[in-house]
Design a protein around this nucleic acid. Structure first.
Length: 580
DNA sequence: GCCGTTTTCGGCCCGACTGTTTTCAGTCG
């Protein structure tokens, strides 16, 4: 969460990359140690600037040496070893590593034999045949690298993209491949299944007795522009817009082991493997099996694999090597939210305000069709000049909603508003008018770049406002477009706990806000959450599943989500907050 | 570089694909 942690993680990642080149070994233990430390610092909720070297060594994956490097970075803004390596390997040379199929060994060979130290030099050496004459290399490798350079602008192994660009593609591929004759099961794994904000590539798993047709179906798919490789069990392609997709075919008896393996994360898998080794077993994508006898211990389902390792099944969203393995071993994992748990939606727009597309009647009917028991209509309020509703409008809408509730007799319909949080934390209207609403969401829609102190004060003021039940999309981020506001989470947590105000988990794939880190840290502190769709159309009510997944990624216990509560308990909470 | 219910030394996850090797090296995830 603290920004300095991200800077430190980035420095450690760069150190890993340079060390990989320096040692000419992608699996160097030192490289892996730096990478593991980077992930550990990234997911740490404590601020590294406030930690001593000793405190840093208590972080799993950080030892004395890395702790000293982190301290030096925090204190001096530099790391001696990093500076030395930067000196030794100029950026142009490192760019060569971005070429798919070119690793540290080839990098060293190019440097030593051909004195090639940048992309232009490589292209020249590929063109005039010097590359193909290198020991252990030939024409085919040269051809492949030339092709890889040509499409680098398309699919870069370093470029991750927002999940809203990737999930629809993956879901379409899964649906299409499921139609191929002989295919039994298809699923995506990888960081997409873990529901990270950004995705590097798509991993698809298929079970079938006959792999050839499904491999062909992927190679020939409309969305695919380039085939990187295709063998008996694995095919790699790139889509037209540059997304890498890997397809693996595994036997049905191995699907569980394969799902574990390809879902990751790497750190989570290594932790599982260690437990397997401790028991005299080995864990691969095919099975958990006995090292001596090769006898299969488990593999058909994920549950079997975790059971055999004496672990509770770990939800994919939690598999980030953040201590979830230890919690699974202690049977101490939280009961996470399922889509069926949601009884209401608390942030919904209609065509009463400028950007909603469906009528109130349509939105309510759609919510009823999805089995909800209560719904808050929260159109934009008057401060949003473009599309907010004025006071008379709000009163008329309130009467119409009450009539609708009477006519239908099924859902409890709350009349609220999505209030706009000004730069000073104030919201639309005045206290008396605000008190007429039955519900309130308040969100930041502007001034995203104020100081941390300003944004914190802004949020805390809004949280303390009794007309505010929920803080909508707390950071205001849009994935791939703009970062959210930065604020002091501890202060926000404290205010929420004092007032009972909930933080929203906005289900829109472009937002996923609160972030997983905020959900995790505020959730652990006991803060309440609302999983809301922010739907502007009836279709967008289906986004609730994404909000649920986001809450799971933050490890949030279902008990802390107010819209999983039965109607009476939920309404009590609404009134409790509003009575100050 | 990290780590310790066998260990403060000696381990550290595992397999597919490709190309260039007639048995393996490099890269990738």
């Amino acid at each position: 969460m603290p920004r300095m942690n991200d800077d430190v993680a980035a420095a450690l990642d760069e150190l890993a990359r340079l060390t990989k080149v320096d040692e000419q070994d992608p699996n160097s233990f030192r490289v892996r140690a730096y990478e593991k430390a980077a992930r550990a610092i990234e997911s740490l909720s404590d601020d590294v600037t406030e930690m001593s070297a000793n405190a840093l060594t208590t972080v799993d994956g950080v030892g004395k040496s890395t702790a000293a490097k982190i301290r030096q970075y925090v204190d001096d803004g530099r790391i001696d070893k990093l500076e030395a390596l930067r000196e030794q390997y100029p950026p142009g040379q490192l760019e060569l590593l971005d070429v798919p199929g070119l690793g540290p060994k080839m990098l060293a060979l190019l440097d030593e034999v051909l004195e090639v130290r940048d992309l232009a030099g490589l292209q020249a050496a590929l063109a005039d045949g010097r590359f193909a004459d290198l020991p252990g290399l030939g024409d085919k490798t040269a051809e492949n690298l030339a092709h890889a350079i040509d499409r680098m602008h398309l699919a870069s192994k370093t470029r991750r993209r927002p999940i809203h660009d990737v999930l629809p593609v993956a879901e379409r591929l899964v649906a299409d491949l499921a139609e191929v004759p002989g295919v039994e099961q298809v699923a995506f794994a990888g960081s997409l299944r873990r529901f990270r904000d950004t995705i590097g590539d798509v991993d698809l798993l298929v079970t079938t007795a006959d792999p050839a047709p499904v491999m062909a179906a992927l190679r020939d798919h409309d969305l695919v522009s380039d085939v990187v490789g295709s063998g008996d069990t694995k095919t790699s392609v790139v889509t037209r817009d540059g997304l890498s997709v890997d397809l693996r075919v595994v036997p049905a008896a191995s699907l569980g082991a394969a799902m574990v393996y390809f879902t990751g994360s790497k750190g989570h898998n290594i932790a599982l493997r260690q437990r397997a080794i401790d028991r005299g077993w080995t864990l691969s994508e095919y099975a958990l099996s006995d090292t001596e006898t090769d006898e299969v211990v488990a593999g058909a389902t994920e549950q079997d694999v975790y059971d055999a390792l004496d672990l509770a099944w770990v939800a994919p969203e939690l598999r980030e090597d953040n201590g979830e393995v230890a919690r699974a071993a202690a049977d101490d994992l939280p009961r996470l939210v399922e889509l069926d748990d949601l009884r209401g939606d608390l942030h919904d727009h209609t065509d009463w305000s400028g950007d909603g597309r469906n009528t109130m009647e349509e939105m309510v009917a759609a919510a009823a069709a999805r089995g909800l028991d209560y719904l808050a209509i929260t159109d934009h309020a008057e401060d949003l000049r473009i599309n907010g509703i004025d006071r008379d409008g709000m009163r008329r809408q309130r009467r119409e909603l009450a009539d609708l509730e009477d006519q239908r007799g099924d859902l409890r319909l709350l009349h609220g508003a999505e209030l706009n949080i000004g730069t000073d934390g104030s919201v639309d209207y005045d206290p008396d008018f605000l008190a007429e609403f039955g519900f309130g969401v308040a969100s930041v829609h502007s001034a995203f770049t104020r100081s941390v102190a300003d944004q914190t004060a802004r949020l805390v003021t809004a949280i303390r406002n009794p007309a505010v039940n929920v803080i909508g999309h707390p950071s205001g981020r849009k994935l791939g477009k703009r970062p959210g506001i930065e604020f002091d989470l501890d202060a926000v947590i404290e205010a929420c706990l004092a007032t009972g105000t909930a933080l929203e988990i906005n289900s829109n794939l472009h937002r996923l806000d609160a972030t997983a880190e905020v959900v995790r840290d505020a959730g652990r502190a006991g803060v309440l959450f609302a999983i809301s769709t922010d739907a502007h159309t009836t279709r967008e009510l289906d986004n609730a599943r994404h909000g649920v997944t986001q809450s799971r990624r933050g490890g949030l216990p279902a008990e802390q989500v107010v819209n999983t509560w039965p109607r009476a308990r939920f309404l009590d909470w609404v009134e409790q907050v509003r009575s100050g």
